[in-house]
């Protein structure tokens, strides 16, 4: 038998409004810590290389997900990346109209993974698959090792 007694008048249904506010202080992890330091200090992306399958990964990782062994070898990327895919967003996180931003997944030749970031205003019009891009960095003194150390990517 179902519950027969229902609330027939919507105004009789109560709601309770509150939030679950949370604050996190994340560690970057063993590999993340190295990646962030390289970005902060030298403005470059750190890559890990697997000694077994020879795959490289960006951002740097501690272990190769397919060989399941630790990756000890790292290198920093000097070459420009390329736009793998891109999208233009004109709503904010709440779904309201907001600033128009073009985001790209930037990949690097011969490296697995990639970096998601915005394209700079001048590059937006030229956005296309495969165009070569490089990061525009904040000044060294302002960098903290976060991806926000990069202002945007521009055409190389």
């Amino acid at each position: 038998m179902p519950i027969l007694e229902k609330i027939s008048q919507p105004s009789m249904a109560r709601h309770w409004t509150d939030s679950i506010p949370l604050e996190f202080h994340y560690t970057a992890g063993v590999a993340g810590e190295k990646f962030r330091r390289e970005l902060r200090d030298n403005g470059r992306f750190l890559v890990s290389k697997c000694a077994k399958c020879k795959n490289s990964y960006v951002p740097a990782r501690m272990f190769c997900p397919s060989c399941f062994i630790e990756m000890k070898e790292t290198r920093a990327i000097d070459e420009p990346g390329y736009v793998y895919s891109y999208t233009t967003v004109n709503r904010n996180r709440a779904g309201e109209p907001g600033e128009t931003v073009t985001l790209a997944l930037v990949k690097f030749e011969g490296v697995e993974g990639g970096i998601i970031h915005r394209l700079d205003d001048k590059t937006i019009d030229k956005a296309a698959f495969g165009i070569k891009v490089v990061p525009i960095l904040k000044d060294r003194t302002e960098r903290t090792g976060a991806l926000s150390d990069i202002i945007s990517f521009k055409q190389a």
Partner: peptide, 20 residues
Amino acid sequence: LDIEYKFVPRYSWAAGVAIS
């Protein structure tokens, strides 16, 4: 290099028949 992040989701929970 820790990363700090604040998250304040708001909810409106339905009390349902009994608790209303």
